[in-house]
């Protein structure tokens, strides 16, 4: 069974048809890329998968079960995590606390037990802290754990978003333009990191990216959107030679290599 299945998905924003009849499916433990020119509807697609907007039409299935009507926090609990194109860290909190927030779901503490300081509360908090630290080491931010998240460099903020998303223990991880604003060296590191994530955490990855080199290197499956519609899909070879894709990109001035 596909990990994620999308059927005839559409989204209308007060007159703007951001997405129209998009159907696709994503295999478990694969890396899929959504590409397309600006405004194609890629982020909108992420927003619907994670419950930020309700779809106007169509359906989204996670391992065969519908996600319709689920709020973003329920979807997070069901195993989908994401990063944001326009970074959304808890910028006044420390790097470490940002990741700890990601551990929210695995902690059973409530107001009462927190005040009473019950042993299990302390224990689970310790476990979460250890995990958070491990994740920071994993993305290479352990050194900055006490820094305010908002003070990190752009590239490190993106890495922190990934660590925070991983802390929710997802089965699917959605990355929205993870390489945006990174220099070539950081991008190379990121490429390795993404591969490592897939292998170590055994999860399914979907990424939106404009950096074609990164897309072609990582993705097993590529889906091309333009003006809210799916215009092509296939492996990197198919996509590079698809005249429709070339046209969509050249039409907007971008170049697909």
């Amino acid at each position: 069974m596909p990990m994620l299945q999308i059927k005839d998905l559409g989204k209308n924003f007060a007159g703007i048809q951001a997405l129209k009849d998009v159907s696709l499916s994503v295999e478990p433990n694969s890396i899929t890329a959504f590409i397309g020119p600006n405004g194609a509807g890629k982020t909108t697609l992420f927003n619907m998968i994670t419950g930020v907007y309700p779809p106007s039409t169509g359906e989204i299935l996670l391992e065969g079960k519908s996600l319709l009507g689920c709020k973003p926090d329920e979807i997070s609990r069901r195993g989908i995590a994401r990063t944001f194109q326009n970074i959304r860290l808890f910028s006044k909190m420390t790097v470490f606390e940002n990741v700890l927030v990601g551990c929210h779901n695995q902690l059973k503490t409530n107001v009462l037990t927190a005040v009473l300081g019950l042993p299990f509360t302390k224990k689970e908090e310790n476990i979460a802290e250890k995990e958070a630290y491990k994740l920071l080491q994993f993305v290479g931010l352990a050194e900055s754990l006490n820094e305010e998240a908002g003070n990190l460099s752009y590239g490190n903020q993106r890495k922190l978003e990934i660590a925070r998303a991983l802390a929710t223990k997802p089965r699917i991880l959605l990355l929205d333009e993870p390489a945006a604003g990174m220099n070539p060296r950081e991008t190379r590191e990121l490429t390795d990191l993404i591969l490592k994530i897939r292998d170590e955490f055994k999860l399914t990855l979907i990424l939106i990216e404009h950096d074609m080199k990164l897309v072609m290197k990582l993705s097993e499956h590529i889906i091309v959107l333009d003006h809210g519609e799916k215009i092509a899909e296939g492996n990197s070879h198919d996509i590079q030679n698809n005249p429709k894709v070339i046209e969509a990109y050249l039409g907007t001035g971008a170049v697909a290599k």
Binding site: F13, A14, T43, N47, V52, Y53, F84
Partner: peptide, 8 residues
Amino acid sequence: GKALHEKV
């Protein structure tokens, strides 16, 4: 009024 969504 018209319903608006915050852009994410």
